[in-house]
Design a protein around this nucleic acid. Sequence first.
DNA 1: ATGGTGGCACCGCCA
Length: 275
Amino acid sequence: MRFRLATWNINSVRLRLDLVERFVKTFKPDVLCLQEIKCVDESFPELALRALGFEHLAVAGQKGYHGVATLSRIPFSGIERRDICGRGHARHLSVTLAHPGRNKKPLLLHNLYVPAGGDVPDPALNEKFRHKLDFLDAMAGWFGHMRAKASNRMILVGDLNVAPLETDVWSHKQLLKVVSHTPVEVEALARVQASHDWVDVMRRHVPKEEKLFTWWSYRNRDWRVSNRGRRLDHIWTTPALEGAAVSMTVADATRDWPRPSDHVPVIADFEIGDP
DNA sequence: ATGGTGGCACCGCCA
């Protein structure tokens, strides 16, 4: 089973439908996970995306904010939306990809949008930061609980809104007190990662000494020159799929397309064996 | 030390 998987925080799917079309025609993903679609299910541009070849769609929308969607050329079953922190936000969607192989072991794909967390990195002063930490803890608890079960073939993608490594930000020192790179968030994300022994696919392909970003603020005029980026978007797999991601690309060319998202897509090619 | 931009819904919130 071979397929190309992409994840992209699109920052309004309706406004940037043309960018999605251009991305799909250029990079030809088989499965595309979107975050921040910013629309309710009813106004999701399903027909236009079906026309691009994605016959299988799962949408978890919400009015105005957040929202995730998973589009696929590969059939899937078992769509699940999970309200991870109990606030009614649409921040998670998982689908079970059908495996054409003989053993048909399920492959569970999680699409996540972790709360950004506001500006003040203090849970006592900033409820949004509190929510972010709670959300990450809930993720760790949930995946830790799942660990006992048979779900050993999972992929997790999305905007996790945390840049864990020093080289995941343009300046480790200058961002230590900036939400997305504070030690308390990095530790919380590390607990999520440890909860199911998740493998950081992007860093299996790019050494941790090298800078690697997926997001550049709209406030930086010349984003490529100043290069004040962060790696907020991630692709993880369970250890059973370690090595299945044979290549990885950050499609940063999209950041120069007209009216871009502030995030760029991350792409991984998977080759998954039968058992 | 500050402010810089963008989307959606509504006269601010969230990123």
